[in-house]
């Protein structure tokens, strides 16, 4: 994707800049941007490592087990079709917890493991099953307790209150999550009804 977007951004800017006669501004920006990228990286280096360290502690304690227990009813509701597949349920909750803790690097491998377990139960191997659909949709919703990266960026830009956004982020995340999950549930139900009536016709 970026292999198309990146050159497009640069070429369009260059052409537009020539037409508008402000190539000089572009020239300045190129070097300023490089400097900004270094400055930003250095300033959020510390905060990001700090969070990863703290969340690593959380991951290794029973804090995680407590969270898994809290998640259990939610997981049974979200994935009714794998009620008896303990392994899949455990992997899914580990992935969700890593997401909640903001450990993206840990969440992805756990999520892929869960996908492999779900694929074993999947009847059509080239199509997502209902459980997989729900699982992917949940992973596209950002279920993060503390939006660490944004806070790190805000702190590096000398915000008066970098953490001011936490509650609004929770509000927006929860709304987005509920919408996506409900939409998925509705689509699964519609699909099932369609399939049932199809089977019924076939029997006739």
């Amino acid at each position: 994707m970026l292999n198309i977007l990146w050159p497009a951004f640069i070429l369009i800017s260059f052409l537009y800049g020539i037409l508008q006669g402000n190539v000089e501004a572009i020239n300045q920006t190129i070097f300023e941007s490089a400097k900004n990228a270094v400055e930003l990286t250095i300033t959020f280096f510390g905060t990001l490592c700090l969070w990863n360290g703290i969340m690593k502690i959380a991951q290794e304690t029973s804090f995680t087990i407590k969270l898994t227990k809290l998640l259990k009813p939610a997981i049974d509701f979200l994935f009714p079709e794998i009620k008896h597949n303990e392994k899949a349920k455990e992997e899914i909750s580990m992935n969700m917890i890593a997401n909640i803790l903001g450990l993206g690097n840990a969440a992805t491998p756990l999520g892929l493991k869960a996908m492999k377990t779900l694929q074993k139960e999947n009847s059509k191997k080239d199509t997502v099953s209902n459980s997989m659909a729900m699982f992917i949709v949940i992973n596209t919703a950002s279920l993060q307790l503390i939006p660490t990266t944004v806070i790190a960026i805000r702190a590096s830009l000398a915000s008066n209150n970098p953490t001011q956004i936490i509650f609004p982020v929770w509000g927006a995340t929860i709304a987005a999550f509920i919408t996506a999950v409900l939409a998925t549930k509705i689509m699964i139900t519609i699909d099932k009804k369609r399939k049932n009536s199809f089977d019924f016709k076939n029997k006739k």
């Binding site: 950002s142 939006p147 805000r154 956004i165 982020v169 927006a172 995340t173 987005a176």
Partner: peptide, 8 residues
């Protein structure tokens, strides 16, 4: 900031 924190 809020958009960055709440979407994936």
């Amino acid at each position: 900031s809020t958009i960055m924190g709440s979407t994936e």
